[in-house]
Amino acid sequence: MSNYNFAYLDEQTKRMIRRAILKGLAVPGYQVPFASREMPMPYGWGTGGVQVSAATLTPEDTLKVIDQGADDTTNAVSIRKFFERTAGVETTEETEQASVIQTRHRIPEAKLREDQILVYQVPIPEPLRFLEPRETETRKMHSLEEYGLMHVKLYEDISQHGAIATSYAYPVKVEDRYVMDPSPIPKFDNPKMEMAAIQLFGAGREQRIYAVPPYTKVVSLDFEDYPFEATKAEHACDLCGAEDSYLDEVIVDDAGNRMFVCSDTDYCRSRRGAGHVGRLAQEEVA
């Protein structure tokens, strides 16, 4: 522990990242460039999120790390261990207890509060990237608010699939100004982004930080005749019976049988603890 500065990064770096975060909060949805550091993990494993978390953590914080909603997957476990070792902060799996939550690809089902910070890991922060490869051009498009191209992508979806088939990393417009990539969260989570907690986005490889302050207007882009829909699998969780949570589909045998379970493991566990029982959990009991 004493071999590291608190939360791994040196104070100068943390100050630089905090400046980027503050700028991001001041201009919601705007991608602030920052001098991303090498972290002791590969790109794609959340180096951006880790740096943002490191700059946000205080010794009194309680940290929760989730990956695809789960607390016990490799990515979540390794980042949680990383901060246990380098920052010595409390960690938890319970959304309610956490003050800083680093997430990959999900927003927790439990409603977040004003005293919480949600840190997203972002692979590609530029929502226009796959339509316009030139960075100089995308920056100009952001600064001049030329977002027609984003709708071309949605148009292509409808013309090919009959509906907007984009189901994750669904583009949003923040506070009627910047179009933003919400990181690869399912579009089911998009409506939750108008929340009480601070949302910070870190992209390590692309060296960008952006943010959504509490209670900021976040609108998912759509067409008048093809409105945005937050979709999920048409099932209830097979373990806890929840009908309002985002589900993972799990193939359970070679006969094509499958089960649906909450992707948010903490939400599922707390519901089961409260006595809710799903379809397959009942069989186990019997």
Binding site: L131, E146, G148, L149, H151, V152, Y155, E156, I158, S159, Q160, D222, F223, E224, D225, Y226
Partner: peptide, 23 residues
């Protein structure tokens, strides 16, 4: 735009000036 369908190519300018009705 070679990666976008003919319809999307024609529609781009319409969407750029604010048309938001797919039909």
């Amino acid at each position: 735009r070679t990666s976008v369908s003919a319809g999307g190519n024609i529609g781009e300018r319409l969407m750029a000036v604010g048309d938001r009705h797919y039909g």
